[in-house]
């Protein structure tokens, strides 16, 4: 009998196209749920999603993904990733707390809500330091604060943005080579890893910002830290970001609905095929 799983999305990017094609290769029936055209019953409709009991959630919109995952899980569907994983990894502060509580090396981080307390935190962290939105992606609004004058002007500008941007997540700047490591975890294993190099004019390494990528051999340390980081979020499929500090690896981010196009290109690993197999495996639990 052909196995059915679902794919819920808001836009089919090349990553989701690769999942559709992988499902065909694996002879898996992949049901597509477009969040732009599908209403999702929340209450009053039993057996709402009886067609499939496992769904890959691939919304680009974080809030859309979060809400649709909660709704699907409430009707008994297993979602990759779970609401717990999504809500934790999707918030950098909550993710930092989980990483630290799990004993995983992660940069020193402060939380502050006003300019005054933020400056106090930055004095303790030292300059340069990094300010990041607690919710956000692709490196947007991640800013390197080089000194107190710059910190004050950046924080002042955040006062005029959405209230979530006034939750100041402040982090030490790790002295690292001009690259970081993205390790792709599925279940209990790192299936691929790549180095991400910042461009000459950019300190951030996000592939979305034009950074160069290349294959990274998966060392036992990368494997251990990445899998532990993924498990600390609740388990599932994640892109774990690590930096090579003078004192060893540190995990600075755990991504929950990870784009993998660049990782596939850099490593040659069939990540979409592995994701489909992982979801199929969940239907048999």
């Amino acid at each position: 009998m052909t196995t059915s799983i679902g794919l819920v999305y808001d836009q089919i990017r090349p990553d989701e196209r690769m999942l559709i094609d992988a499902a065909k290769r694996e002879q898996v029936d992949l049901k597509l749920y477009d969040t732009n055209t599908t209403p999702f019953p929340v209450t009053g409709f039993p057996n709402r999603f009886e067609i499939t009991n496992v769904i890959l959630q691939r919304c680009i919109s974080y809030f859309r993904g979060l809400h649709v995952t909660a709704t699907l899980e409430s009707s008994g569907v297993l979602v990759v990733n779970s609401f717990e994983a999504l809500s934790t990894a999707g918030n950098k502060l909550l993710a930092s707390i989980r990483l630290a509580n799990s004993g995983i090396p992660t940069p020193k981080t402060f939380l502050a809500f006003t300019e005054e307390s933020a400056i106090q935190a930055l004095d303790k962290l030292g300059y340069p330091a990094v300010i990041k939105p607690v919710v956000g992606s692709w490196g947007r609004l991640v800013t390197l604060l080089k000194d107190q004058e710059m910190a004050k002007s950046i924080i002042e500008s955040r006062e005029y943005l959405h209230p979530i941007q006034q939750v100041y997540y402040l982090q030490e700047k790790i002295d690292r080579p001009g690259r970081d490591i993205r390790a792709f975890v599925i279940g209990d294993h790192v299936v691929a890893a790549m180095y991400r190099y910042a461009t000459d004019s950019e300190w951030r390494t996000n592939a979305a910002l034009g950074g160069r990528v290349e294959n990274c051999p998966v060392t036992p340390e990368i494997e251990e830290f990445s899998v532990r980081a993924a498990k600390s979020m609740g388990g599932g499929a994640f892109g774990v970001d690590l930096m090579e500090s003078k004192n060893g690896l540190v995990v600075h981010e755990v991504n929950h609905t990870t784009e993998f196009k660049a990782t596939v290109k850099a490593t040659g690993i069939d990540i979409p095929g592995l994701l489909i197999k992982y979801a199929v495996g969940m239907t048999r639990r």
């Binding site: 680009i60 809030f63 956000g136």
Partner: peptide, 9 residues
């Protein structure tokens, strides 16, 4: 036009 406020990874 891809980018919306909470889009991306």
């Amino acid at each position: 036009v891809l980018e919306k406020e909470d889009w991306g990874e």
